[in-house]
């Protein structure tokens, strides 16, 4: 098998059971070398359990997981120096500084040439380098965790909910880090419950719900393949607009800001709605027509999965 064809991660029929709870239910997928793979789903879907099995924190109940061609249950010692892991809710020793934390983990990996200042700069913690871990905010701890995950210059990086708790600016900085990692040829395995994050960054997205992968593909494939509608938004619409849209056969939804959202299947439906509003002289500030988001795809997919009677897992 050539390097190009060998997957970075190969998961086959992975199952994890805790007593009566089936946390991961027969999950299979492959992650190519050098891609950014996003594992998305709501809290409790099984994302963290799956990623912790792949990055060797947990062991599977059944199934096989191969990471860089090695079985994670048998070759853990060979795998660990080649991966970096940011666990969910990263914590470290409270009374050592940012710099000391990175130094410590680099020593665990026997890395003598770790560019500690470079890592601190990468995650924008220069002015906090002498701060004790316990004094950092949640977001800063997360950023330090990313730096720690990179001390050994890993080939595969696991980031479990890396932007949870970060402000928008910090989130974008982390996104830039992830894009940069991908450009360097690293494989990034991202778990997130932010659909827009996966949509923006990932080459491949796997949607997990109740322990099962319900869909997998590039964001565009998932959106085109599963979301059947366009989304029409009328901003600051007239009070009568809601009834008018309903009268022409659609189901609008209005929010607190008087914005009306309607799912339409064809562009001709948009014309029909606009004509009805014009005839009734009902006004609105602006009009927006978009393709559905990954979140809409998720809602569509998990709703269908439940109605189709898939096995009750929790």
């Amino acid at each position: 098998m050539t390097k190009d064809s060998e997957p970075a991660i190969d998961v086959e029929h992975l199952t994890k059971r805790y007593d009566d709870l089936l946390a991961v239910d027969d999950v299979s997928f492959t992650v190519r070398l050098g891609e950014l793979f996003a594992f998305v789903g709501p809290n409790g879907a099984g994302k963290t359990t799956t990623v912790e099995i792949i990055d060797t924190i947990r062991t599977p109940t059944s199934g096989t997981v191969r990471l860089l061609g090695m079985d994670v249950t048998k070759r853990k010692r060979d795998i660990l120096p080649r991966i970096g892991v940011l666990p969910q809710g990263f914590t470290s020793f409270d009374r050592i500084t940012v710099t000391e934390t990175i130094q410590y983990y680099s020593r665990l990996f026997s890395c003598r040439n770790t560019d500690i200042e470079g890592l601190i700069e990468l995650v924008n913690l220069e002015d906090k380098s002498k701060e004790l871990f316990q004094n950092l905010s949640g977001g800063l701890k997360q950023r330090l965790g990313i730096a720690v995950a990179l001390v050994n210059d890993p080939e595969v990086v696991f980031l479990d909910e890396p932007t949870t708790g970060l402000d928008p600016r910090a989130r974008r900085e982390v996104w830039e880090v992830m894009v940069d990692l991908k450009k360097k040829g690293k494989t990034v395995f991202l778990t997130t419950h932010y659909m827009e994050e996966a949509e923006l960054l990932a080459d491949t997205v796997a949607i997990i719900s109740k322990g099962q992968v319900v869909a997998m593909g590039s964001p565009e494939e998932l959106i085109q393949g599963n979301a059947k509608c366009l989304v029409l938004t009328l901003k600051s619409a007239d009070e009568r607009a809601l009834e008018i849209v309903r009268a022409v056969g659609f189901e609008p939804v209005q929010d607190d800001h008087k914005n009306i959202t309607v799912n339409v299947e064809h562009p001709s439906d948009v014309r029909k709605i606009l004509n009805a509003l014009t005839d009734a002289e009902a006004s609105f500030l602006t009009l927006d027509l978009r393709k559905p988001s990954l979140e809409a795809v998720f809602l569509e997919l998990t709703g269908e999965a439940l109605r189709q009677g898939s096995a009750e897992t929790v």
Binding site: E52, D55, T56, I57, R77, L80, P81, I83, V85, P87, G89, F90, T91, S92, F93, Y105, L108, F109, S110, G145, V148
Partner: peptide
């Protein structure tokens, strides 16, 4: 309980 052991288990220690 804090999760430090979890992170350490992903290192060669």
């Amino acid at each position: 309980q804090k999760g430090v052991i979890r992170k350490l288990s992903t290192t060669p220690i």
